[in-house]
Structures are given as C-alpha cells and as structure tokens.
C-alpha cells in the first residue's frame, strides 16, 4: 500500500512538473511576435487571415486551452509551418516517422553496452588492483571523458572511410530491419555504445568492490561456499540493486537519443527533426518535441526510483 501511494504521489508530482514546464514553454513561445512568412506569389493578407483562423491571434490562455483540447480530443499537435520539408503536415505524424531510427540505434547500443559494460565491471572488481583492473579502469576513465562525437569521428574515419567496413552515413528509407540498414546503423551504434560501456563498467566495478568487502561475503565463505558461488549468489545480486534501475532508466531514455551522433551519421531521427525545428523556428514542432524530451526525462527519473522498490525488497518506498 505504501508503494501504491508513493507511486501515485510521484506520478502526481511528475505530471505537475510536466504541466508547469509545458505551460511555461507555451507561453514563452506565444509571447514571440508572429512572423508572417510570405513566399513568392503569396498574399500577406491571406496568410494573416489563415493564421487568425488557426487562432494565432487569440489571447494566450484561450490558445493554450485550445491546444490542449485538440491534443486530448484528436491527438492534433499542430501543423508544420516553416520547416520547408514538412510544411502543412501534422507534426505528430512526422514525429512518429522519425522515432524508429532513433529508438533502434539506442536500443542496439544499449544491447551492446549493458552486457559488455557490466561484464568488464565485474571482471575489474574481481581482479581489483591487478593489472587487468588498472587497464580497465584507465580505459574506462578515458572513454568516459572523451566526448562521444570524438569517437564518432574516429569510427567514421577509421571504420567507414579507411577500412570501408560500413557506409559513412545511415541509409535513408523506412525498411529498418534489413541487413543493409542494420549495417549502416552500426557506426552510430558503436559511437553511442563506447560511453555507456565505460559508464556501466565504472559503476559496476564500484558497486561490486564495495559489496565484495562486506561482512556477509566473509560469512558466505565461512559457511563453505566457493569464491565463485559467493560472488554470483551474494555479491552480484546485491551489486545489481543500483545497477538494474540504471539499465531500466537507460531503456526509457533511448527515446531521446543523441543529437550529435544523429547529426554526424545523418540519422533521420528525432534529434535531427528537433534541430531543424529549432533553427527554422517551427513552433509546433518545437512544442511537441520539447514536451517529448521533458516527458522522457521525467519518466526515466520516476521509473528508476520506483524500480528500486521492486528490485530490492529491503527498500520500502515512501515508508516513514
């Protein structure tokens, strides 16, 4: 019951924060002067009347109410205005077509990063202060610090250009599950994975070394377990308590992806759309994507917190 109440409370708070951010964004956007973008052969008055008909000159609270109503009633997030490629297209539809590449790349990278990262972390912890540990820890430090776009450049230069193993940029088109498409995704997947592998390895190593020195490990050994048994049955399970929520959080935030990696490898994903929307001042796209990124961030935070309670029965959520 504690748990249920706690989750409800957290969800309520999250929705409140989300609402405030959306309102702030909306108001700040609507406070901007309305640009009438007249193209060759168009009449400024017609465009102004169009905008009036679309409610651009209504008072802001009325506009907000209508905006929310349209979203709730018909899932209508607005229409692209200034992004040339998507002019007069419903922003939601465009957004949905942009999701798969972003999600796929991030899912693939997590699928690589989680086992390798955790594996390296465990290995380093078991070989603590030996050369294996030092090698892993040093490389982890390097890989965590060096920005992801530097790997991306390296991957692009070495693997794609020099060794010609993969195409330099991602393929276009919508067949996401063909071999060619997968192959063209690999460079971006690798570039994303480097950082996360290092992150997981460092975190796992830190957690596991701490658990390995705790008293119950001594007890486990004294009652006759071998080192391997004690490590897998006692140490790993305890070390996983903070690691597992991290993995879950990662799988939520795969939705948001990385703007830079998407740009370098020309991934036709959400990040590119967001950038284009920002640069061309397409406010409906901007609102939708801002809401999306905010929501993903908030949701990941909540899921991580709540998953602690499910994974570790000792943690009682919201208990006083």
């Amino acid at each position: 019951m504690y748990m249920f109440k706690y989750i409800l409370k957290r969800l309520g708070l999250m929705m409140m924060t989300f609402g405030i951010i959306i309102i702030m964004c909306f108001v700040l956007i609507k406070l901007l002067p309305i640009v009438i973008d007249v193209q060759f052969g168009q009449d400024a008055d017609i465009i102004r009347n169009q905008l009036i008909a679309r409610g651009y000159y209504d008072p802001i609270p009325v506009q907000f109410f209508n905006y929310i109503r349209r979203i709730v009633v018909s899932g209508d997030w607005g229409i692209g205005v200034s992004l040339a490629e998507y002019r007069n297209m419903p922003v939601w539809d465009v957004f949905v077509t942009k999701l798969p590449p972003t999600v796929l790349i991030n899912v693939y990278s997590s699928l690589i990063a989680v086992p390798i990262g955790i594996g390296l972390g465990i290995f380093a912890a078991l070989k603590k202060n030996k050369w294996q540990d030092h090698t892993i820890s040093t490389s982890v430090m390097i890989f965590i610090s060096v920005p992801s776009f530097v790997y991306a450049f390296l991957v692009q230069y070495l693997l794609c250009f020099r060794l010609k193993m993969f195409p330099i940029t991602m393929r276009g088109g919508f067949e996401y599950f063909t071999w060619d498409m997968f192959k063209s995704m690999i460079p971006s997947v690798i570039s994303l994975a480097f950082g996360s592998i290092a992150g997981y390895a460092r975190f796992t190593r830190a957690e596991l070394t701490e658990v390995l020195t705790s008293e119950f490990m001594l007890l486990a050994r004294t009652k006759g377990l071998t080192k391997g048994q004690a490590t897998t049955r006692h140490a790993l399970r305890n070390a996983m308590v903070p690691i597992f929520p991290m993995i879950i959080g990662e799988f939520i935030s795969v939705l948001s992806g990385s703007l830079i990696i998407e740009k370098i490898f020309s991934v036709p994903g959400v990040g590119g759309l967001y950038l284009a929307a920002i640069n061309s001042k397409d406010y409906d796209f901007f609102m939708l994507l801002s809401a999306f990124y905010t929501f993903v961030g908030l949701a990941a935070g909540i899921v991580i917190d709540i998953s602690y309670g499910f994974i570790d029965p000792r943690i009682r959520m919201g208990a006083k």
Binding site: I21, C25, I29, I278, F286, S290, T294, G297, L298
Partner: peptide, 16 residues
C-alpha cells in the same frame, strides 16, 4: 521544475 527542463529548451527559448 527547473531541473526537469531540458537544456535545449532553455537555450532555444532564450535564442528566440
């Protein structure tokens, strides 16, 4: 609230 606003939103709104 401030912490939950993605940095990109802050910077683009400021830019606008």
């Amino acid at each position: 609230v401030l912490a939950a606003v993605p940095f990109m939103i802050v910077i683009s709104l400021l830019k606008y």
